[in-house]
Design a protein around this nucleic acid. Structure first.
Length: 425
RNA sequence: GUGCCUGUAGCUCAAUGGUAGAGUACUGGACUGUGGAUCCAGUUGUUGCGGGUUCGACCCCCGUCAGGCACCCCA
């Protein structure tokens, strides 16, 4: 049996087990966000293409967005990221929004690329941003939220690391090397490739594609190996001081090779990675001081990051940190002994539901054996049996499938007994 | 868009160019008022699809579709 209608490439079907994990993840993101006082919001999933033009990065907009023309002739994009929408929403109500703005969101995004490990065409992403405060503590706060999240899902500083750099520092250092400013995008690209290419290939790329001399490449290489370079940046020294105060320094390190791809970052940039390096970045973020003005608002700086659901899911899987979730909410199953007792069972199920118990009624009279097997495979903890004996005596059997123990009780006490057994008392 | 790899039962995978199999899952029974464990039995296939080579193709060749991985980019 093969479905004649295929799902769209790069999309995922969330069967109940996967949906339970997604909901769990969403809850962890919500909890970390709320711990720091952030408010949930949502933006449209459809935006005009021009919102992203020249602000997100050429490739992302021109090659990796789902774009279509609507019936009115407008060019519409399925959102590939959230930050431009956030900037637009802030710019629209800039005067009336109290500062600082602390907002977070979790929702679907689309990018048209070849699916592979950690990458799908439709994915879910946690976004969290702080706007209106330009300080080292603001930058550090977002990292602290991220650490709060990592701790809450059980990821230790030995398993994940947050690598931080600052674009202003790198820009100044590159200028100090006497390199032309118009080559800076290419140099950022070269830096980004440092740990992706072997040394000789990396040098060849810098020479042939970016147009650097051997001496310039040597100097750049020196910069990228200088783990103390952050000490030359007042922003980074203040940042690492704040990281200390916020109690998250064990997760954070300076890495001069972190640049990030998005064009709108202006200051601190960071990403989180699994320590063995066998996964893509878990999240990425940074400071963007021009974006709100770019979409028509008054200048307002911001700082934020985004985490996709796919890579973090793989990392949690790798460390055995995906919780055993039970997608079935049912607390009690009312069995149907035979056709003559359907009404009795249905009335008892209704009573249990009225009392607030999640109650499933077996859909037909069947062998008890089958009904109990069903409850067992679905991990339903409690089963109610009303056979001819119980019915005649106005009683019901309550069986705890976890312990295997059962008791016969009067139907007038059933709610209290079931409630007690379900809660394990 | 480029490259490499893989398509066999619902799932995970076997099968020197010579009769398509196992585990698991599922269904039934042992057990006609009781799940998990054990045992027994049974069902499951256009070997992705279309050509070609061959006496004979799951196996070799070509094409095609689908999936995976890497590049690109990035969550």
């Amino acid at each position: 049996m093969k479905p004649t209608i295929r799902p769209i490439k790069g999309t995922r079907d969330f069967y109940p087990a996967e949906m339970a994990f997604r909901t769990w993840l969403y809850g962890k993101m919500r909890a970390a966000s709320q711990r720091f006082g952030y408010q949930e919001y949502e933006a449209p999933m459809l935006e005009t293409l021009e919102l992203y033009a020249a602000k997100s990065g050429e490739e992302l907009v021109k090659e990796q967005s789902f774009v279509f023309t609507d019936r009115g002739g407008d060019t519409i994009t399925l959102r590939p990221e959230l930050t431009p929408s956030l900037a637009r929403m802030v710019a629209q109500k800039q005067r009336e929004l109290p500062k600082p703005i602390r907002w977070w969101s979790f929702g679907p995004f689309w990018r048209y690329e070849r699916p592979q490990k950690g990458r799908t065409r439709e994915f879910f992403q946690w976004n969290i941003d702080l706007l209106g405060v330009d300080s080292a503590y603001a930058d550090a706060e977002l990292v602290a939220v991220l650490v709060e999240f990592f701790r809450s899902v059980g990821l230790s500083a030995a398993q994940v690391v947050i690598k931080v750099n600052n674009r202003k520092l790198m820009e100044a250092q590159i200028k100090a090397l006497g390199l032309e400013t118009d080559k800076i995008d290419g140099i950022y690209k070269l830096i980004d490739k440092l740990d992706k290419l072997p040394t000789d290939k990396w040098r060849a790329y810098g020479r042939d594609d970016i147009g650097l001399s051997a001496a310039q490449i040597d100097q750049l290489s020196g910069l990228l190996n200088n783990r103390d370079l952050w000490q030359q940046s007042s922003e980074l020294t203040a940042f690492f001081n704040a990281i200390n105060d916020l109690g998250v320094s064990d997760y954070v390190e300076f890495d001069p090779a972190i640049i990030r791809g998005l064009a709108y970052y202006t200051g601190v940039v960071f990403e989180a990675r699994e320590c063995s390096g066998s996964f893509r970045a878990i999240c990425g973020g940074g400071r963007y001081d021009n974006l709100v003005a770019d979409v028509g608002g008054e200048p307002l700086g911001g700082m934020g990051f985004a985490m996709g659901d796919v890579v973090i899911g793989l990392v949690l899987e790798e460390y055995g940190l995906r919780p055993a979730l039970r997608p079935i909410p049912t607390e009690a199953l009312v069995t149907i002994f035979d056709a003559t007792l359907i009404g009795t069972s249905a009335r008892i199920a209704a009573t249990l539901r009225s009392a607030g118990l999640n109650t499933e009624l077996f859909p037909e009279a069947a062998k008890l054996d089958r009904q109990l097997k069903y409850a067992n495979t679905q991990s339903i903890p409690v089963v109610i049996i009303i056979g001819p004996d119980e019915a005649a005596a106005g009683k019901a059997t309550v069986r705890d499938l976890r312990s295997g123990q059962q008791q016969v009780v009067g139907q007038d006490q059933l709610v209290n007994v079931v409630r007690a057994v379900v809660s394990g008392q």
